[in-house]
Simulated scan of single mutants.
Amino acid sequence: MNQKEKFFSRQSAPERSARMVENICGCKWSLTVYKLLAHQINRPGEMVRKVEGLSTKVLNECLRRNIEYGIIERTAFNEVPPRVEYRLTPFGEKFIHILAELEKLQAEMGPP
Rank of each mutant, 00 (worst) to 15 (best):
F8N: 04
F8H: 14
S9P: 04
R10N: 06
R10V: 08
Q11T: 12
Q11G: 02
Q11I: 06
S12Q: 09
A13E: 15
A13F: 15
A13W: 02
E15H: 10
E15Y: 14
E15R: 13
R16M: 13
A18S: 06
A18G: 14
R19P: 05
M20D: 07
M20A: 04
M20N: 04
E22Y: 01
N23G: 12
N23R: 08
I24P: 09
C25L: 07
G26I: 05
W29M: 09
W29F: 03
S30V: 11
S30Q: 08
L31I: 00
T32V: 06
T32I: 13
T32F: 04
T32C: 00
K35P: 02
K35M: 03
L37T: 07
L37G: 04
L37F: 10
L37Y: 14
L37I: 09
A38V: 00
H39E: 12
Q40F: 10
N42Y: 03
N42S: 02
R43F: 03
R43T: 07
G45V: 04
G45P: 11
G45W: 03
G45C: 06
E46A: 01
M47C: 13
R49N: 06
R49L: 13
K50E: 10
V51E: 10
E52Q: 14
L54M: 00
L54R: 11
T56S: 14
V58A: 10
V58C: 14
E61G: 15
R64I: 15
R64Q: 13
I67Q: 08
I67V: 15
E68K: 00
E68A: 15
Y69S: 05
Y69K: 04
I71L: 11
E73Y: 15
E73G: 03
R74A: 11
T75V: 07
N78M: 05
E79H: 09
V80F: 13
V80S: 15
P81T: 06
P81S: 14
P82R: 01
P82G: 15
R83Y: 07
R83I: 04
E85Y: 15
E85P: 09
E85K: 08
Y86N: 02
L88F: 10
T89V: 05
